[in-house]
């Protein structure tokens, strides 16, 4: 594997007595599209949330773009817990699309997309607006710039949320079950946008989903996570058609026969 942009090195995550990640080793290459699958409670979303700095880690080291995410190097070369300034810097490399969209309800679609580029990246308002309109065009919502989130369908809101994340120009985009909260007829339009991103951009993408067919379509690699560690991983055609581990076989049989 060349040039890993993400590396989990023996990462543990515990919530009280409950161990969610247990010595996780996991690597993603630059530009790679990786899907994480696994039963609920297996720690899939936790991996994304740790990367987005929404959860800290209990043990181990997470590396993003060659730097430790939750640590920084002290004067003597050892790692110490990251300061807020370090986390702020590292977060700039990542973006996240949430299951429940999490648009800001008090802002128009356009403001939702321009607010962070203006306030965080320091873009001028016209620059941010240009960038936002370009992205809205990409997700097929140019005509909706002045609407408020509650005036849109879930599928449209999620497409705005994708545009909002892209407006920060992240190197890595995390998708946490992006279609799970959608009515079935709205899943397609969101998948279409993600598919286009996967095919046309060199963005590194990490996706947690239960949509196996979609995972197979867009991923370079699929990881099956169970009980907090990678149980099996491989190219989608291998993992989906010829899983090696009994646990993987069992899981796939359950979800595919659904």
């Amino acid at each position: 594997m060349t040039d890993p942009i993400i590396r989990f090195d023996k990462v543990a995550k515990r919530f009280g007595d409950i161990s969610v990640l247990d010595g996780l080793d996991f690597t993603v290459s630059r530009g790679e599209k990786v899907t994480i699958i696994g039963p609920s409670g297996s720690g899939k979303s936790t991996i994304l949330r740790i990367l987005m700095t929404l959860e800290d880690i209990s043990d181990g080291t997470v590396w993003v773009d060659g730097e430790p995410l939750w640590h920084e190097k002290a004067g003597d070369g050892t790692l110490k817990p990251a300061s807020e300034a370090h986390l702020h810097k590292m977060r700039g490399k990542l973006g996240m699309v949430f299951q429940s969209f999490n648009l800001f309800p008090h802002m128009t679609v356009l403001r939702n997309i321009t607010e962070a580029p203006v306030q965080v990246l320091g873009l001028s308002k016209p620059e941010a607006k240009d960038r936002a309109m370009g992205l809205l065009d990409m997700v097929g919502l140019s005509d909706h710039a002045e609407k408020y989130p509650h005036q849109m369908s879930g599928g449209q809101q999620q497409r705005v949320a994708i545009a909002r994340a892209l407006a920060m120009r992240p190197d890595i985009l995390l998708f946490d079950e992006p279609t799970s909260a959608l009515d079935p007829e709205l899943v397609g339009e969101v998948q279409e946008v993600i598919r286009k991103l996967a095919y046309e951009h060199d963005l590194t993408m990490l996706l947690v989903t239960h949509e196996m067919r979609f995972a197979r379509e867009i991923s370079d690699r699929v990881c099956f996570i169970d009980k907090g560690s990678v149980h099996e991983e491989g190219a989608p055609e291998d993992l989906f058609t010829a899983p090696q581990q009994p646990r993987t076989q069992e899981f796939l049989r359950a979800v595919l026969d659904g």
């Binding site: 987005m52 929404l54 702020h88 973006g95 962070a116 994340a165």
Partner: peptide, 16 residues
Amino acid sequence: RQQYEAARALNFTPRQ
């Protein structure tokens, strides 16, 4: 909490 998480993901400072 989701609103705070979205704000954090977009790298807003606590004050913002």
